[in-house]
Computed example of a mutant assay.
Amino acid sequence: MTAATQNAEEDLIYMDGFDLENPELDEAIKDRALTSGGYPYTEKMKTKDYEKHLRALQIELVKLQRHLAESGERVLALFEGRDSAGKGGTIKRFLENLNPRNARTVALPVPSDRERTQWYFQRYVTHLPSGGEIVLFDRSWYNRAVVEPVMGFCTPSQTENFLHEAPPFERMIAEEGIHLFKFWLEIGREMQLKRFHDRQHDPLKIWKLSPVDLKALEKWDEYTKARNKMFVATDTPDTPWTLIRANDKKRARIAAIQSVLWPIDYADKDFSAIGEIDHKIVMSPEGFLAKTG
Rank of each mutant, 00 (worst) to 15 (best):
M1F: 11
T5L: 15
T5E: 15
Q6S: 14
L12I: 14
M15R: 09
G17N: 08
A28W: 02
A28D: 14
A33C: 07
A33P: 03
A33M: 03
L34E: 07
L34A: 10
T35D: 01
S36T: 07
G37Q: 09
T42E: 15
E51V: 05
L61K: 05
E70K: 13
F79I: 12
G81C: 04
P100D: 11
A107R: 01
P109H: 00
S112E: 05
R114V: 10
Q118L: 12
Y124E: 01
S130L: 11
I134V: 12
V146A: 12
V147C: 06
T155M: 05
Q158W: 03
Q158I: 07
T159L: 02
H164E: 11
H164F: 07
A166V: 15
P168F: 05
P168T: 12
I173V: 15
I173K: 03
I178Y: 04
K182P: 04
M191W: 01
Q192W: 10
Q192I: 08
L193W: 11
F196L: 02
R199N: 06
Q200A: 14
W207D: 13
A216V: 05
K219P: 04
E222L: 15
V232Y: 07
T234G: 12
D238K: 13
D238I: 15
P240V: 12
P240W: 08
L243I: 13
I244Q: 04
N247P: 10
K249S: 09
R253S: 04
A255L: 02
A256S: 13
A256T: 11
A256I: 00
V260S: 05
L261F: 01
A273H: 04
I274P: 06
G275I: 08
S284M: 03
E286L: 13
E286C: 09
G293C: 01
G293E: 07
G293T: 10
